[in-house]
Design a protein around this nucleic acid. Structure first.
Lengths: 185, 185
DNA sequence: CCTTCTATACCGAACGATCGATATAGAGGC
DNA sequence: GCCTCTATATCGATCGTTCGGTATAGAAGG
């Protein structure tokens, strides 16, 4: 390989930053190129199908992150309370304390929805059933657990939106502080 | 003078539909032109500063709507519980039962943020203090009332995001059903 | 009533810029 | 010399915007 260019993982991270800041449509190739330090042709070398491939890579990366960070928590022998706290810590890291927007929100807007809509829907449903698992472990009946899990997702995304709108991460952090009560309280 | 094909109010409504579906950056002049039935240049007749003017008109229209529909509720002699229920009904109509996205969310993304960020922030703060007023009337101390109002806003926007992502308005409607408890319960 | 006159409403065509995408050729490590 | 990666140059399409011009209708003057 010619040059010690950044590892693919870091490239995808930087692409993710742009998508999260500008959405799918707003993430122009120029922005993506500038953020990664790679020329257009290099981007097309790594992502032959262009922008859509880049977005899919970012989505896969986030999915992998959840698989690596959240799933082990769910599968551990910890108590529901401990699991919630670990998940909260993971979400806090993932969303950078509320400074980072959620791709699932951005990829459900405009033309991106046609392409990514089903994937977004499925990921949200997956997250919901994962959280519902904790609530069930805490003793809540299945339908109640699902409702609590959905409330948690609503709070998380609402906290992100309001924090972004106000330019202040306090709402999101308050959501995380209250998530234990929302989910198993 | 020729009669306008559509009253300005209706034009702004149709522009709002496009902005709410595609965001600011994603709302191309072609989409805006098709939605209103006006040619590109005709749009510049009504909105001399182009797209930004159109977005401001839509924002103003939403602000006026709140002034006409929500403020009278707040200023009425009704009980806090009745006020919450009336506000919930108004929000249900405004967001079309969860099928419509919130401009304040969309206009805080990407380049639009530079232009509309302060306005978005101010509108959210206004909405928060309006809702906090009801919570105070219900007997909650000021800081608690503000916290409840912010929770309500988080729930509303989270409900919209999750509903849009799942392609199902149930979460938003559930949020509205629970808003009374969130705000004064 | 019948003309001008003028303001408003609107359109098609085209502007320069940027969009996402590609083709070709060269540079660097095996 | 191959294979990987990147630079340059360019594509057609579309972006937001502007320009030149037409159509409509009420006002003003006779």
């Amino acid at each position: 390989m010619p040059r010690p260019a950044a590892p693919r993982e870091e490239i995808v991270d930087r692409l993710g930053d742009v998508f999260r800041r500008h959405g799918y449509g707003g993430a122009s190739l120029k922005l993506l190129s500038d953020a990664t330090g790679l020329g257009r042709s290099s981007l097309y070398h790594y992502f032959p199908n262009g922008k859509e491939d880049m977005a899919l890579a970012v989505l896969d990366s986030a999915e992998r992150w959840m698989g690596d960070e959240v799933v082990p928590i769910l599968e551990s022998a910890a108590s529901p309370q401990e699991k919630v706290r670990a998940v909260v810590a993971a979400l806090d890291r993932f969303y950078l304390g509320g400074r980072r927007s959620c791709l699932l929100e951005l990829f459900a807007i405009g033309d991106a929805r046609e392409v990514f809509g089903p994937r977004v829907s499925q990921r949200l449903a997956n997250l919901r059933s994962a959280l519902a698992g904790i609530a069930r472990e805490a003793g809540h009946p299945p339908d109640d657990a699902t409702r609590r899990a959905e409330d948690a997702m609503i709070a998380i995304h609402g906290g992100l939106v309001v924090s972004r709108g106000l330019g202040d991460t306090t709402p999101f952090r308050r959501v995380l502080d209250g998530l234990e009560k929302t989910l198993i309280g």
